[in-house]
């Protein structure tokens, strides 16, 4: 591993035993790896719970020092189109594995970002190269993976990490980096990162870059800085009846901070319950929010859908529901 001063890398677990919070999965994967033959795997679960880490541990266990020659990491959402994926897969699979193991491993991150058509194409690729390649795929929602692929994989569902697991990681890093951190600060880190270990560690490192003395306030400040912070401003404009400013601000935030409509909707959904409006209207707005989120996953234009939602907030500001 090239040395890294980014803590998510520096402290990434290297062994099965170090992977926290997913004991059941680790037990089963370990026995597969010990047999030196893994099936295609589908790792499903939220971000930052150890999917990529498990994939890395698998290849390191399988190939030892030669893991890098036998492992290809692909990002479904980064690679433009399935054709690129296929081409890379082909190039990679064409040569035999160098180690004692007759196959190589391809890690396809965010497989649920692939369209249905691309997944169909991938399914053929998986079959064509089944002898020389094993696919380890990760996704947030296994429901977005087509059945034929699911049926070709062993599926592991990752749980959201519990506080005690994240706390272990934090303490280990704090000790190695000589940080002082209180129990409250750990709680704060966990809450701000919502069980996403990558985010917790990033947040810890960002805070530590200011001072080795980690306090809940500091964490709050740093995490608020990186939040889609202006979402409240967007909503406040809308509630005050100023639709135009509200949507201009929204577009601004989305563009300059490069956050997706999905992030915006998540922030809005949380923010609704902090607003000074009738609870009944909050329920109606939540319903609208859910519908908007669904439409975005369906392939509608994020900004047009969000504007319709903002218009509902304008009404909510006047005590009216749509």
């Amino acid at each position: 591993m090239p040395q890294s001063d980014i803590w998510t890398e520096k402290y990434r677990p290297l062994l099965f035993d170090q992977l926290l919070g997913q004991q059941e999965i680790v037990k089963r994967v370990r026995s597969l790896v010990q047999a030196m033959n893994i099936p295609h795997l589908l790792l499903a679960g939220p971000a930052g719970v150890g999917k990529s880490t498990l994939a890395l541990i698998i290849v390191k266990e399988l190939f030892g020092d030669q893991w890098r020659e036998n492992y290809l990491e692909l990002n479904a959402s980064d690679e433009r189109g399935i054709d690129v994926v296929r081409q890379k897969v082909k190039d990679f699979a064409r040569t035999k594995a160098i180690a004692n193991i007759p196959f190589k491993v391809i890690f396809l991150d965010e497989a649920d970002a692939l369209t249905k058509e691309a997944q169909q194409a991938l399914r053929r690729t998986m079959e064509n190269y089944a002898n020389t390649c094993r696919f380890v795929m990760s996704c947030n929602y296994s429901s977005r993976i087509i059945d034929p692929i699911q049926s070709r994989c062993v599926i592991f569902r990752f749980k959201l990490l519990e506080k005690k697991d994240v706390a272990v990681v934090i303490r280990r890093i704090a000790e190695a980096e000589k940080l002082t951190i209180s129990e409250e600060a750990i709680t704060q880190l966990y809450e701000a990162s919502e069980g996403d270990c990558r985010r917790a560690v990033n947040l810890l490192q960002a805070t530590a870059s200011v001072s080795p003395d980690i306090t809940p306030d500091m964490i709050n400040m740093i995490s608020a800085k990186a939040q889609p912070k202006d979402m409240r401003v967007v909503l406040d404009y809308a509630l005050a009846g100023d639709f135009t400013n509200s949507r201009d601000k929204l577009l601004d935030v989305m563009l300059t901070e490069s956050i997706s409509g999905e992030d915006v909707i998540k922030a809005i959904q949380k923010e609704i319950w902090n607003l000074q409006i009738e609870p009944e209207i909050k329920v109606r707005l939540t319903e609208k929010t859910g519908e908007t989120e669904f439409r975005m996953t369906e392939g509608s234009d994020e900004f047009v859908q969000l504007q319709a939602l903002l218009a509902s907030f304008v009404l909510a500001g006047q005590g009216k529901a749509t």
Binding site: D78, D109, R198, A206, I222, I259
Partner: peptide, 22 residues
């Protein structure tokens, strides 16, 4: 950053906001 930390660009774009001082 995504390649270095085994994640995707979308995620890394978000991480940059947090990790800027690092």
């Amino acid at each position: 950053l995504a390649r270095h930390t085994h994640t995707n660009t979308k995620r890394a774009l978000k991480d940059i906001n947090l990790l800027k001082p690092v």
